[in-house]
Design a protein around this nucleic acid. Structure first.
Lengths: 369, 369
DNA sequence: TTGTAGGCGTTATCAA
DNA sequence: TTGATAACGCCTACAA
């Protein structure tokens, strides 16, 4: 008799707070209080115990959907990724979820890059955000930001809570950039260049990532600055069209065309090292170098960025700048949750330290000792 | 004046259905109907147009949390993965989300394997399911099933809709197994063995996965049966303790100890090929073979399973059984959604065909031509 | 320390 | 074709 007779949903929903209240002969608001850690102390300890055992016995589970309607808080945030299939994102996502989990939040996920990459790529993201908003997510964690992302700005302007991960947007005139958790890309490039220079390299080129990503831009600038600290100049910079093996291969071909490689140690002016903006680009470069019969690291040293899985299984194992992906996701989640709790202006930005994983793809420059 | 004065939630929620109704001078039920494709036809076409433009102008978004409370349907399903960081799962998850997206559903995700793998591994899964149930998910897609999973059975028995992916549970006495979408592991092993036998191999060993996973079991059985079709017997089977590089390395060492490898083509009885239950195990085996100075594929051919990313970048590139991970996820999502729509007993199980990706880690058996 | 009343935004049922 | 009314299950004032 506990259940109202007019249930509609198809789901076999369990007992409600009313059932519990009746069962115990108390009012439902008492139950509600008993379940709220913040107000539990108002309840008589004996009653509290009864409520808890009864809840367990009846198998009552507070209905969050109902609570969400009442409080306006869904305990849910939206997460925008380009594509979880890209090895960079799983650890980020894992970090995000672990962070959200700490406060009992869930993520609603959307992969915004369609496999067929049909025109209007942002359209998928917008549709996803629309649906997430309908589900009343409390905020967004965004890994798809462009440096100049008008749509994201307007989403933010409309009052949405947003934290960016991995990629940032540029600060605009009179307005600071969105809160973000990123890796120190400048430092990453400095580590890479320091390592190469230490090995005697002086003619170092860069395969850059797309300039509309903050990572592409920052790593490129970081590369230049790092060279300057050693009094060197770039031996060539090619901007790849994407963070992909194919784009990396194409970039490497271009680089070789403008700057013949160090086939002989005697050949002055030839390239002896390449720093790629990302591991996939590095892999593409590696393929081309193989195909050209140029040996890595004997003739050319190669460094990637991200330290994605299995890099250490390659031959040669790829030296790469390791980024704290998991940590980035974790911090982003905590940052967003803090903002949602109303924590005023808790540091709205975090920059994590990368680390160079030295492996077999880098060695002393040919001709140096 | 449209907004009620006693808003509570912190989220800047937009206008409600009431605001829209007032604005248009109609009753909210009319709005509700107008937004429901199934009952839209009841609305005058002129009014319908007015509703749509007004909704757009006011920026009204139906509140799904409220709808969920009213209908009992959250348009949300729970997804249980061991760890999104394991390269097998991203494409599965992507498939799941694309499938859910087709019907406007979202996934709530949980990674159930704690990184510190503290005791009570299932505990994380149970806690996650508990929270998902509180969020009123309509069903579950589970990639963490054990062959004998009492907890999962009881979850199912309690009325939860469940579809398994990748891993299945065993059918029990008098009860059929849970709905599932898997790969044809038997066939996968047949493809692998056929390939090796065709290359002249006759002494083939298996590095099996854990027996409590359906994949470990099925691949092992499939390996044996495939050998039988060629009148052969296993040249050795070692069960690895996990699907990991380390476990694979250990398994390979064990295998070599009991069955010295084909260091010389003359040595009769020596191993000439190994089929691993999974790519990570194969990678572990590869490391040990390298360390032992045994050449792949010249002395021993090696086959993995799953065809995870970057396998083709290794030296040698690893031959592997490719599984339709994305498709598995997609089908699992559709299966679950169909069940939720009440489609009676739409085929509750799907088995997808794997494909052998032949690469450089397999070659003619030493001594054969 | 506990109860009462009203509302959160939507959908469903019944009337009109 | 549209309107009125009553849930859905929980939370929050306020009263007792």
């Amino acid at each position: 008799m506990a259940r109202s007779s007019t249930r509609r949903g198809p789901a076999p929903a369990g007992p409600t707070i009313n059932d519990l209240a009746q069962h115990l002969g108390v009012h439902k608001s008492t139950i509600s209080r008993a379940m709220d850690p913040a107000r539990r102390h108002l309840i008589g300890s004996e009653l509290l115990a009864r409520v808890e055992t009864a809840a367990r016995e009846l198998g009552w589970r507070p209905n969050r959907a109902a609570a969400a309607l009442s409080t306006g808080r869904s305990r849910t945030v939206g997460v925008l990724l380009p594509d979880i299939t890209n090895p960079v994102f799983p650890p980020i996502l894992r970090g995000i979820e672990d962070g959200l989990d700490e406060e009992g939040y869930f993520a609603l996920l959307a992969n915004t890059s369609r496999p067929d990459s049909r025109p209007g790529g942002q359209a998928a993201a917008q549709a996803a955000v629309e649906r997430m908003l309908a589900q009343r997510v409390e905020g967004f964690i965004v890994a798809t930001a462009l440096r100049d992302d008008a749509w994201l700005e307007s989403l933010h302007a409309s009052g949405a809570r947003i934290v960016l991960v991995n990629r940032t947007s540029d600060a605009k005139a009179g307005r600071s950039a969105l809160p973000a958790v990123t890796s120190d890309d400048m430092l990453g490039m400095q580590l890479a260049v320091d390592h190469l220079v230490g090995l005697g390299h002086r003619r170092i080129a860069h395969l850059a990532g797309p300039a509309y990503f903050s990572t592409g831009q920052a790593r490129r600038v970081g590369f230049d600055r790092a060279l300057q600290t050693h009094g060197l100049q770039a031996a060539g910079i090619v901007t790849c069209g994407a963070y992909s093996i194919d784009a990396g291969a194409e970039g490497m071909r271009e680089l070789l065309a403008m700057r013949p490689a160090a086939r002989s140690v005697a050949r002055s002016g030839a390239l002896t090292a390449v720093v790629a903006a990302n591991d996939l680009i590095a892999l593409g470069a590696l393929q081309v170098l193989h195909a050209e019969g140029i040996e890595v690291p004997q003739q050319i040293s190669l460094i990637g960025h991200n330290d994605m899985p299995l890099l250490d299984q390659l031959r040669p194992p790829l030296t790469s700048v390791r980024i704290q992906h998991y940590e980035m996701g974790l911090r982003a989640a905590r940052l967003l949750l803090a903002a949602l709790q109303g924590t005023p202006e808790a540091a709205s930005t975090a920059v994590l330290r990368p680390e160079l994983m030295v492996r077999g793809s880098t060695a002393a420059a040919p001709g140096s000792r």
